[in-house]
Write a protein that binds this DNA or RNA. Structure first.
Lengths: 147, 147
DNA sequence: TATTGTTATACTCTATAACTATA
DNA sequence: TATAGTTATAGAGTATAACAATA
């Protein structure tokens, strides 16, 4: 287990990553908001989802997730259909238009990442990716309540 | 150099880290906004700064940085004095009250990180921290313009 | 003229609370 | 009663553009 100074440093670098993300998001095509991009990406990654699952995955309030969904539906990027098993629930799925939009953004983002990280080794890219995934999963359980 | 699929995965995990950060920030003490917390942290880390430097470090628009500063000054957490060398410029520095506030938040954040990452090895915590720092620095140069 | 910083404005993001419909 | 989701509202975050002061 690491010591306090290491956690301080980790916390600080989490902010730094936020700066990178913020910068990346500035390049989204006009008309595509950050939230819609996030919804499309999560749906692509996890397949069809209920609103509650999307809420969990985005780690936002349910009301926020609901509004993101409404926006993405209005743009024609996702479809919101009734869940036959539980009529309170909705099933969200990517439309072809949504997939096109996502593909375009992915293409651009991947390109800029490749450009910026040209001097990174394979191992470092993978290492960072894996550790970030593990970080997320360390926060996945019992994430509710005040800390 | 990594291949496209690896960058896609990296991009996806950047979002996941955003979820973690969002969750962490929800625990800030009432009255302390995310932006103020960021300003205090950067000032602590880098020492006295000019507004332009803060803007760079936070990777936000200058107008946003200016407003964050105004808020933190209003709370008594930072001081905004004139730069004797260039009277257009301002020097920002932490006040004792600002340092107290930061210490309290750091304490809490460090604690929750330690709790969540109890099963991480020293090496993994350090590895993630270093790679995130390197990611940030890979975006530091020529960060302007559209990508 | 260019640079540093601020203000005005508009839009997006986020959480809380109140609500509807279904279980 | 509890749960899934939506809507209303208010506050925080962000970018663009116009501006003032200084270099």
């Amino acid at each position: 287990m690491a010591d306090k100074a290491q956690y301080e440093e980790l916390k600080s670098q989490l902010s730094a990553v936020g700066s990178v993300t913020r910068w990346l998001m500035r390049g989204l095509p006009v008309g595509l908001s950050r939230s819609s991009a996030a919804v499309l990406e999560v749906l692509d990654r996890h397949g069809d989802l209920r609103v509650g699952e999307l809420t969990e995955l985005l780690a936002v309030d349910a009301s926020a997730a609901s509004r993101y969904v409404t926006q993405a539906v209005a743009r024609g990027w996702i479809e919101r259909s009734l869940d036959p098993l539980d009529r309170r629930s909705r099933i969200l799925s990517l439309t072809p238009a949504g997939r096109d939009q996502l593909d375009e953004v992915s293409e651009r983002l991947t390109h800029v990442l490749a450009e910026r990280l040209w001097d990174w080794s394979d191992e470092d890219v993978t290492g960072l990716t894996d550790l970030m995934a593990r970080l997320r999963s360390s926060f996945d359980d019992q994430r509710n309540g005040v800390w």
